[in-house]
Design a protein around this nucleic acid. Structure first.
Lengths: 354, 354
DNA sequence: AATCCATGTGAGAGCGCTCTCTTGACAGGG
DNA sequence: CCCTGTCAAGAGAGCGCTCTCACATGGATT
């Protein structure tokens, strides 16, 4: 008791009490307190209660660094958002993914260490940092084809989960949605609504979602016997501005379109404004479908039909897979593909009343 | 040398080499290696070079936990985004702020630990976590009036910087922009463009930006001798949907307005779509000015005049203030107010050609 | 009654690092 | 020639925790 008071007052900063002090107050050994704190079953009820009382009394909180030093675990997970473009600034995708990840990690008392390398040199520093083993695992979001990170991290033997699906074949766990199937259902919906000249504003083709959604678009056209036509396909980045520009190109090349499948809601929003400016009515003249079902989808005019992807759940799954691979002896990469759902709104209503 | 090889191979995970091993290879003591690694000047050139060679050869990286244990520093900073509403999902504000913070922290080799409590109970857990001293400092973003976090963190004696400005007087460092001045200049611009019935869609009034931008709006009206009118003021949250709904209310109460100052670009985007749906032309019939100068401002139709706030720089300043207060003996709270800039675009062009 | 095992608890080493204190070498002043 | 001052480098303690091992106890088994 006296002892506890001899440490300088500034110790309020560090959280104060140590295992040793709790042990003294509870009248047991350090080892026993450690057992109680870590939930070991080999402690009798009386002793357990005495220790818990002492813990409460002293406001004891384990020192993370000391624990890490001996367990060789940092109890922290890095989330790397390696998005060089402006996408990260405009798309609500990342905050939602982070929220999902954050919820799962904090439920397991794991720290979320956020890394946002914004240049090539920073990406290398990030790779060094991760390879040094400062974290127990890595979650890599927004994976582009040319990203050197997965290779470096894998080489260092650090557990990792990426999203979206990497396009180069590699032995890594990933989480993704059924982009191809989702795009397919969106376009099939347009076909069913009587549309015949269906264009697409695809996403960037250096990452899986861009490529897969384009593939799904083509699938649906093929299924409908419409065949695909390069002049109906334009590419944009995942931004509203990019969507607007792409739509302008599309309209000047093919003024006869009666439907557009956009690879994201932001792209669709850009397309919508260009369509309106060109004097076309949506959905009467041109139907539009987006992808994401982000908040913007319900506030466009008209409200946007969109392929919903469960973003928070993707975050949960990424965290779950990573935790499994850290804890389990399970070395085999695992893949999780989540389903999408078409949310029908005004922007894709049938051309004529059925 | 032999020694270095006796440790099991699985050690690749932990980064491997220790100070001890480096010392052996370099033929010096642990203490000397520590001096070199930490840049102490009291090491001769020859020895320094020998140590550096050994560090490179072994790929030595200091063990963070061991260092933390003795320095009593975690070398990590928590960033808390305590936004219960949907704002965090739609507004590009947070990713940009995070980017600014991340850049500053990683330049100082500080870990960014992200915390996103999404319920009251999680907020309490977060407070416990922070008060336990697991991080060296806290950056609190999106501060609402009723947030219990600042009080808890201050009581625990943890260095902290908040943003925006807290409305209750409290002794805490903060970073904010000149919301009132920025709003003032936006509305003055509308006045100068010949507008006379100027409304505002204000932001939430439980946080400084909402209140301050409204105050700036009133200031400008007063300066122009127009006086303020409650029927010209409506409140929305910082979303596109909220902006649209508020605009509808505004229009039905005051169909005679000829200008709108929106407290954010997302609000303005919502307002724009309602204005268009009501058959009004922008800027001919109604001028619109937003706040943020976010990416959406340049892709609305027409492009949106907006008050630019330097979001990345806010992140930098927050990090700088926090680092200063952790390192310096400087206990006095500091305040940084950044300037805004009015970016003129089509949505607020003069009513008639001058 | 002697032996066994299961169970609860304590003692003590050691994780990798920093930092104070001490030692040793050498230069210059008395 | 000894003493002192300066500077580079080493020795060693100790940060707070986990975990292995040893030990004590008591009831069941032979």
């Amino acid at each position: 008791m006296e002892e506890a008071l001899t440490t300088p007052g500034r110790d309020s900063r560090t959280g104060g009490a140590t295992l040793e002090q709790v042990a003294k107050v509870a009248g047991v050994s350090r080892a026993t307190v450690s057992r109680v704190v870590n939930g070991s079953p080999r402690v009798s009820g009386d002793v357990r209660r005495a220790v818990e009382a002492a813990v409460t009394e002293l406001g004891y909180v384990p020192n993370r660094a000391a624990r890490s030093l001996v367990t060789r675990r940092s109890d922290s997970i890095a989330v790397v958002i390696a998005e060089p473009s402006g996408r990260v600034f405009s798309d609500p995708f990342f905050p939602r993914l982070l929220r999902g990840i954050s919820a799962s990690l904090s439920a397991r008392d794991l720290q979320l260490v956020l890394l946002m390398p914004s240049s090539v040199s920073e990406t290398h520093r990030t790779a060094d940092y991760l390879a040094a083993g400062h974290v127990d695992g890595v979650l890599l979001a927004s994976l582009h084809d040319d990203d050197p990170l997965p290779g470096r991290i894998a080489a260092a033997g650090i557990p990792m989960v990426v999203s979206p699906r990497p396009r180069r074949p590699m032995s890594v766990s990933y989480v993704d949605v059924d982009n191809r199937g989702g795009a397919n259902s969106a376009v099939a919906h347009l076909v069913a609504a009587g549309r015949r000249v269906i264009a697409t504003v695809a996403g960037p083709l250096d990452m899986a979602p861009g490529v897969d959604r384009l593939a799904g678009y083509r699938d649906a056209l093929l299924d409908a016997g419409l065949g695909s036509d390069p002049s109906l396909e334009v590419v944009a980045d995942f931004t509203q501005e990019g969507g607007a520009k792409a739509m302008e190109r599309l309209l000047s090349a093919r003024p006869d379109i009666d439907a557009v499948f956009a690879a994201s809601d932001l792209i669709a929003a850009g397309a919508l404004s260009v369509l309106a400016a060109s004097g076309r009515r949506v959905p009467e003249d041109v139907a539009v479908v987006g992808f994401d079902d982000s908040p913007v989808a319900s506030s466009t005019r008209p409200a946007l039909t969109s392929v919903r992807q469960p973003i928070e759940e993707m975050g949960h799954e990424m965290a779950r897979l990573l935790i499994d691979s850290i804890e389990g002896a399970d070395r085999a990469p695992r893949r999780v593909i989540l389903a999408t759902e078409l949310i029908r709104r005004a922007s894709s209503a049938g051309r004529r009343v059925p």
